[in-house]
Each structure stands twice: as structure tokens, then as C-alpha cells.
Amino acid sequence: MNIWNKISLGRLRLGVQLFMLVFLLYGGAILGHYLADKISGTLPALACAYDEQTSDYCVLIPFQHQVHHRLGEGLVRLQQFSMNLIIPLLFTLGSFLLLFMVLNKAFCGWICPLGTVQELMYRLGRRLSRPVHRLMPGKVERVRPVKWLVLLILVFGLPLATGLGVTPHAAGDAFCQVCPSRIITTLATGNAEQLAVNTRGWADLAFGALRAFLAGFVIIAALAVRQPFCRICPMLALHATFRRLSPTRLVKRQHDRCEKCGICHQACPMDIHEIWHKDGSSAFHEDCTLCGRCAEYCPDDGVIEIKVGPLTLFGSSRDYYRARIKDEKPDGNQSHRLALRPKGVSR
């Protein structure tokens, strides 16, 4: 008996997301002041360290600090450069990998607080009957490299340059300076401090202004565009780099009807067209957040599966698809008891 016929993967994911949102934003207040230090501090999701009640925080914080303070400053003082400066960086990377190995990119699709907030905003957009804007293959391919540039420049480049004494100190954690999660998650805890723009220097002012602008843009854009910030998030790039190392993965096998269907692509919040056109390992694209919507909305048995090693956690099935689409359309809009039937597909 398939348990997924009784419970919806989408609802389970929403439940996990809401639980993790509360846990990550307020866990420190509930379970102890030092909880974030206790758990790891290397969470592969955007749980902000500027949230004073967070129960665990984003790996990008120690990454940037180590690149800035250890690597950059160590390079300046070459005579002191040693493995002592490199080991903490490797340790952070190792902790990240250990956590990442368990869930792979599901940290994005199931746990990241900013991802959850964007999804909730998109749901609100559906309630408000806002239009849906999708990124078609031409556009999506222009957006995809941005996350790599953000990773390279804001997470590694500017912190390193700051450590080398080239850029202002404010650039020492450049990504955190512009990350909208820093504002959105801390505002959710009633703290407006991160929204305030530092006016002491031009770099602080520029970073603060960009952060506030980006947070405002993401919140409103998420009403009509799925996961707008996720598409340029450096965490997605970091996950993508190591995604083949994890036993948790998305698997798709070729099916004759795939070519005319494409519902999986419509369901994908990251507009990954490869899930439709490709199969095998190519279908598990670097932008995939393992949300599982493609598998939920695939109307054929066992074509798309989420697997951990040899174990199938969830596999597409016709029965599940029929039940799911009565509740919600692939694009997230509410169904009106009419199943979406793509052109050229007869059931």
C-alpha cells in the first residue's frame, strides 16, 4: 500500500516547512539562548544569524567570516599562513557537506525559511488572483548563471578581497549584507534593526539600501513569480556543486508520453524544463530544490521518483496525480474540480 495515496507530499512538505520556519526563527527563544551555537551554525539554508532567536544559522556566515578573517588576512600575513587558517574553512565546508549529504537540495525545498516565506507569498498571490509569471527556457537560462556569480563574488570574492585589505570592511560578509532573509526573517521576530540602513559609510549605505530594496522586491514579486530569490541564491549554487555526492536525488526515466505532456515542468517552481525534456541524471538539474512537485504532478506510474540510495521515498503515480490535481493545479492555482489536461494528452 502506497502511503502517498493517503497523504499528500505537498501537504507534508508544507507542514515540514512551517515547522522548520517556526523552529528556525524562534527556536532559540523556546529552547535556549545558545541553541544556534549548539546545533551547528552550518545549516545549508538561509536561516539568518542576525535573527537573535534563531535555533541554527546559515553556513554562509562562517564561510564568509573565514574567507575574510582567516584566508584573506592570512594571505596578507604570508609568514603566518598555515594550515591553521585553512582548517576552519575546511571544517565548515565539511560540516555543511555532512548535513547536506542527508537531505541534499531538500534543504532548499523543505527547510529554508526564505524559501518557505516565498512559497507562502505565492500562495497568497493565488488567493488574490494575481497572475503567474514563469521563466521560459530562454529567460531561465539567462538567470541561471547569476547564482554562480553571487557565490563567486559575494560569498568568496568580496570577503577575500576584504581580508586582503582591498575592499571596505562592510564587504567582509557581502552576501549577508544584501541577503533579503536578513530582513524578512528578523522582521518576522519583531526586530526591525536589519531593515535600518547604516549611514556611517558609503559601503554600508549601499549594501543596506540594496538589501532593503531586494527584500521589498522579493516579497512582492513572490506573489506572482515562484521563488524569485531562490533562482539567484548562492546556497543553490553551493548545493548544486555537491548534489551528486548525496544519495538523496531525483530520478526520471524516459516515457513515451513525456514529450507531449510537460505537466512536470508546469509544476516546477524553478521552471526547470530539463525535467520534461531529459531523463536520467540530466533531469536532476542544478536548480532543483527537491520539492517533489514534478513527481506529484507526473501522471504516469514510476516515471519521476525521489530516492535515497536504492530506496524510493516518493514515486509518481496516476492515482496520486488524479487526487492531487483535484486539489491544486500544477501552477499552484486552486483547481475547480477540473483536472488540467494538457493538449494532446488523453487519459
Partner: peptide, 17 residues
């Protein structure tokens, strides 16, 4: 100032709606 920039970001995204 922060609220102003956030509002500007929101306004920039409103054409999408």
C-alpha cells in the same frame, strides 16, 4: 531610509502583479 528602499523595491515589483 531602510523602509524607503524596501518600499521602492516593492513598487518596482508591482508591475508583475
Amino acid at each position: 531610509l531602510g523602509a524607503g528602499f524596501a518600499l521602492l523595491g516593492m513598487l518596482s515589483a508591482t508591475p508583475l502583479l
